[in-house]
Design a protein around this nucleic acid. Structure first.
Length: 669
DNA sequence: GGTTAATCAT
């Protein structure tokens, strides 16, 4: 796993101007971190000779009699001469033998018997290492429960901690892995870098990366000065890309380049895809070009990532170019390629072209499936054209494709988001009629849409029904219900939900805490709100700007400008950048507190700090003026908004109109 | 590979 052993890079990334970032903090001490905990992985990497030696009949030691004896008599006494014949075996040979044995699940009982035997006769050193080899092997063969049993028989040491964390991460039990890591840190040990890789990989497995967890992990790695090897750098870069922090991801690509490592294609693809998703197509293209210049042939997934960007910004010509380049390079388009292309035509209102793509798809032997149609439906939903649902459904059946669960989930969400609760419930009924079992996403969508329309009673009924039909609520479900009970100021029920989460072992996430801050803040319970903020910090989650925004907003709406400013300061001292959202709330706070001059000084602050004021900024400023009866100053603000390139929306125009109305009535008097 | 939850102006 040493970075020096990796092949030299086939290409060098030239990155867009992002080199304002500080030098890599994690690479300063790469040669200093060699905790005992790493021995486990070191054995795997470095002791090939010994490892092989243990497989073969050893010139000095024949283990066969011992192993035969142990598999027949797991519970000795062992004849003394048998014990003595192994007294001089060097420890590394035992380590290798156990590792070799436990790599095959059928030999596991023998491996375990051997470890117990060695300990009983005190023939080896570092039993912790032996046990961690066993735990590690159990984790690799999906025997997490057995791994825990084995670990719990003794107090946890760095070696067993690491083996157990690895076992959890490999088996997708992220929560247990994180809890163990936390305990390990509290006990004063640092975790193995391999475990950081395994945990980050497990974090990415469901494709949505929780930024707070990632930030927390990265903070620990930084604090512990964990060495970032090639694998971990790739994992961290990919995770940051998938978490939406593409600048961080680009930075780690740069770090790899600087250390002479080549990023994996999958890492580059994740970055290109994320850049595309953010509409940063020039950068996406630049990184993609680097991939090609390095002599690597991009395949379908890489092209799809680039295509995503062009579709996102509506660059239809560029999107078409990508597809023709794929043809030229004989890279076969897949369902994803086609569905992106269909998205692009759909977004441009070119339904006919989209239909042609569907035909082409069939002609090329890629059968359209529910996935493609759910993408089409989602893009209509995002543009507000929920009526198209029926058309998509018809088109689908023309192609002989039946909707699957996820398609129905999108459809239910589409109707729910546009106030069509009857259509939504009808779709839900049809889904069940067709024998498709609703999942947590289905129920969450149904419940949340009812909450959003203010039908909290129905939402609660659905929450009960969900459980009656045997579908277990997840963290998201609880977050939705906490929000609903909070809106109704049912504080005991909110606590009831939190208690149930805890008894089920569901950890509150950043959204849970933010929701709590929001609902407590909105109803003026600021002490409770701040308590939640503290609880989040002590749970080890990094407070997000969203959370502070919720708090600032709550103070703002009550006209408590001093407290809002204070919350803003605390946010800054936590190292969070002021966002437009937070500053708009601050303007609102001053406005509601009749401090219009200060509201305008926030506008100045935005301009001085290269933050572009938006429609909300100007609308809130106009409101601040109305609040202090300075109607005559409103039109100038509206004017400035237009000049700064903001398109006024309904609310902005309404604000101007009401100011003009007040002016007129003031003139009459 | 697609779907769900929290933050700004009437």
């Amino acid at each position: 796993m040493n970075t020096l052993l990796l092949p030299s890079p086939p290409f060098h990334l030239r990155l867009p101007p992002l080199h304002f970032l500080p030098p890599p903090p994690l690479l300063r001490h790469r040669h200093h971190f060699h905790a005992a905990s790493q021995q486990l992985t070191t054995i795997a990497a470095d002791d090939h000779d010994l490892y092989d030696a243990a497989l073969l009949p050893n010139p000095h030691y024949d283990f066969a009699p011992l192993l035969t004896f142990l598999s027949n008599h797991p519970d000795p006494p062992t004849p003394l001469d048998l014990v003595e014949s192994y007294a001089a075996v060097p420890a590394p040979l035992w380590h290798s033998l156990i590792k070799n044995l436990s790599s095959s699940p059928s030999n596991f009982p023998t491996a375990y018997a051997l470890v117990s035997w060695l300990q009983r006769h005190n023939l080896c050193f570092s039993y912790e290492l032996l046990y961690s080899i066993l735990i590690n092997a159990l984790g690799r063969s999906e025997k997490l429960y057995e791994a825990f049993l084995l670990a719990q028989r003794r107090s946890l040491t760095p070696l067993t901690y690491n083996a157990l964390i690895g076992a959890c991460a490999r088996n997708g039990d992220l929560e247990k892995a994180l809890n163990l890591m936390e305990r390990m840190r509290r006990d004063g040990y640092q975790s193995d870098y391999v475990n950081y890789s395994l945990i980050i990989q497990s974090l990415m497995r469901n494709n949505i990366v929780d930024v707070s967890i990632l930030e927390k992990l990265y903070g620990e790695m930084d604090a512990d000065r964990i060495e970032l090897d090639g694998q971990l750098l790739n994992d961290v870069a990919t995770a940051f890309a998938k978490a939406g922090d593409v600048d961080r991801a680009l930075y780690f690509l740069g770090v790899m380049q600087g250390s002479g490592l080549s990023p994996k294609t999958s890492t580059v693809v994740a970055v290109v895809s994320e850049l595309g998703g953010l509409g940063r197509v020039e950068e996406a293209e630049a990184v993609f070009e680097e991939l090609k210049e390095g002599g690597l042939k991009p395949r379908t997934r890489a092209y799809n990532a680039l295509l995503r960007g062009y579709v996102k910004v509506g660059a239809l010509r560029d999107a078409e170019c990508v597809v023709s380049e794929m043809e030229r390079c004989q890279v076969l388009p897949d369902e994803h390629t086609y569905s992106l292309l269909i998205d692009a035509y759909g977004n441009a209102g070119r339904w006919e072209s989209a239909r042609i793509v569907l035909k082409e798809m069939e002609a090329n032997g890629v059968k359209p499936n529910s996935y493609v149609f759910s993408r089409i439906l989602a893009s209509y939903r995002d543009r507000g054209e929920w009526q198209r649902s029926f058309q998509v459904l018809k088109e689908m059946s023309n192609c002989g494709v039946s909707p699957d669960r996820q398609f129905y989930n999108v459809m239910i969400d589409t109707f729910g988001k546009y106030n069509c609760l009857e259509h939504m419930m009808a779709a839900f009924g049809k889904m069940k009629e067709e024998g498709i079992e609703p999942d947590t996403v289905t129920w969450n969508t149904l419940i949340d849409c009812h909450c959003k329309q203010g039908h909290h009673g129905k939402a609660e009924e659905l929450f009960e029904e969900m459980q009656e039909t045997g579908c277990s609520p997840c963290t998201t479900t609880y977050n939705i219900m906490i929000n609903s009970f909070g809106a109704q100021e049912r504080w005991d029920d909110v606590n009831g939900l939190l208690g149930r989460m805890q008894s089920l072992g569901l950890l509150p996430n950043a959204i849970t805490y933010t929701t709590l801050v929001d609902i407590y803040g909105q109803s003026g319970r600021f002490d409770d709100a701040i308590e939640c903020l503290e609880a989040m910090k002590s749970a080890g989650l990094k407070p997000s700007s969203t959370m502070y925004n919720a708090l600032i907003n709550a103070y703002a709406q009550k006209g408590l400008s001093e407290q809002a400013v204070n919350a803003f300061r605390v946010m800054r001292s936590d190292g969070l950048k002021p966002s437009i959202l937070a500053l708009n709330s601050l303007i609102n706070a001053f406005g509601e507190d009749r401090r219009d001059a200060e509201a305008f000084s926030v506008l100045q602050y935005m301009k001085d700090n290269n933050l572009k004021p938006d429609v909300v900024t100007y609308t809130t400023l106009m409101k601040a003026l109305v609040r202090v009866d300075k109607y005559e100053k409103v039109p100038a603000v509206f004017e400035e908004m237009l000049l700064s390139g903001c398109t006024p929306d309904r609310k902005a125009r309404a604000m101007l109109r009401s100011a003009l109305r007040y002016m007129k009535s003031a003139l009459k008097v």
